[in-house]
Nucleic acid binder design. Structure first.
Lengths: 127, 127
DNA sequence: TGTTAATATTCCTTGACGCGTATATACGCT
DNA sequence: AGCGTATATACGCGTCAAGGAATATTAACA
């Protein structure tokens, strides 16, 4: 398992993380809430712990697992540039929609071709 | 390919997305900047488009690919509860660190056991 | 029309990962 | 000591996706 993104690609692991966001849980508790075989839970927790998403505390025979923020923050950080991108494009989208509702005659998506905005500044553009 | 998380699990796809955040790009441009064989680029773009991460515009023989915000926003939305979690724990961490620097004698992490906070309210805790 | 450039698609192989089953380890309790 | 419970690990299997190489498609242009 190489990156934090691989770790959260697995649906069951995301489910486990979502469970832990409320409070720490034992393996058994996770097992029951997610209706998942115990070895599966343990294995996913192993992956999560190796990647730093969770840490465990020994409580008798139980292990209590709790969230650690760092890897999720890493993902959050990766998203940052894109967040800037889409907030910068909300108004552009609005302008686009404005233009659309006055030229509704064009078929667009049907033929999946030529879709106007912000292309005019390119160099060649043959044809 | 099932979820947006699977899509961004692939490093090359993340690289492509990061490229597109600045401006739209042709396949060739992506191919050169990422030093990646052309079929690979096309295949990853196919996955990205099917998942709604990008859309393409035909420009002569070229196809210009650009970002679409929705899937990334979906990921951002999934992160929201965790963001609340870790911001709620920043101050708890600070208190924790305060406690640490006045009891630096204990070895803690070395034996990977019994690690204090918010456990006192549990029932058994035998030993 | 033939050629070249840009992009997409297909086929094959390989490796990784998740799952299920079985087993191991550790602890508490009687 | 023996048993039950909680958790972890090992092993074999099936699947699926990424990579590489070859080929197909489309458009421009001479």
């Amino acid at each position: 398992m190489v990156s934090v993104f691989d770790v959260i690609a697995e649906p069951n692991r995301r489910a486990i993380l979502s469970l832990l966001v409320s409070s720490e849980q034992s393996v058994r508790q996770i097992e029951r809430q997610l209706r998942m075989p115990q070895p599966a839970v343990s294995k996913h927790l192993r992956v999560l712990r190796d990647a730093g998403f969770v840490e465990s505390t020994v409580d008798a025979q139980r292990r209590l697992y709790r969230l650690k923020p760092e890897p999720l923050q890493e993902i959050d950080a990766w998203l940052a540039p894109f967040r800037r991108f889409w907030s910068a494009h909300v108004d552009a989208l609005e302008r686009h929609l404005d233009r659309m509702e006055q030229s509704t005659a064009t078929k667009r998506k049907a033929t999946r071709k030529r879709r106007g905005p912000n292309r005019a500044r390119h160099k060649g553009e043959t044809k």
